[in-house]
């Protein structure tokens, strides 16, 4: 690996948690990418916004609640979290419903941001 190469990685989360494993396993990739000292951005759009909903209680479905991990991202120097505004509003959510601080972005700005990336992983 070329020493010190830093690329812009973006993870586009478009799926809700628990119904499928994508959100959890994508989060594992995010953490590893940060460990490689890469420039990491996380995008939450469409049903992916639900991953950030406060108050997730998974005891009843006997599945690990991985939502606290989003709050720990700060400790991995992952601070670029973006939520697409229309997706959030279409799901009856506001910023106050989300368990981490995010930057709410218009769809046009989201499109521009994607253009700037080197590697975009969507799931």
């Amino acid at each position: 690996m070329s020493e010190g190469a830093i690329k812009k990685f973006m993870f586009v989360n478009r799926k809700a948690p628990y119904g499928t494993v994508y959100a959890l396993e994508a989060l594992e990739t995010v953490l590893i990418t940060a460990a490689f000292d890469q420039d990491v951005s996380l995008v939450f759009m469409d049903d992916g916004v639900f991953q950030l909903k406060k108050g997730q209680q998974t005891k009843g479905i006997e599945t690990k609640n991985f939502s606290p991990t989003y709050r720990a991202l700060d400790g991995y120097d992952i601070e670029k979290l973006y939520v697409e505004q229309e997706s959030m509003e279409a799901r009856g959510l506001t910023e106050d419903d989300l368990l981490v601080d995010v930057t709410v972005m218009s769809r046009a700005d989201m499109g521009k941001l994607m253009e700037e990336m080197d590697v975009v992983l969507s799931c």
Binding site: M1, S2, A5, K7, F9, E28, T29, I32, T33, A35, F36, Q38, D118, V119, L121, S122, C123
Partner: peptide, 20 residues
Amino acid sequence: SGLGQLVEAGIEADRLVTFG
């Protein structure tokens, strides 16, 4: 191997294409 191999491939390759 580990997930690091994916990240490393993303860094080293010119393009990463996902199929799912």
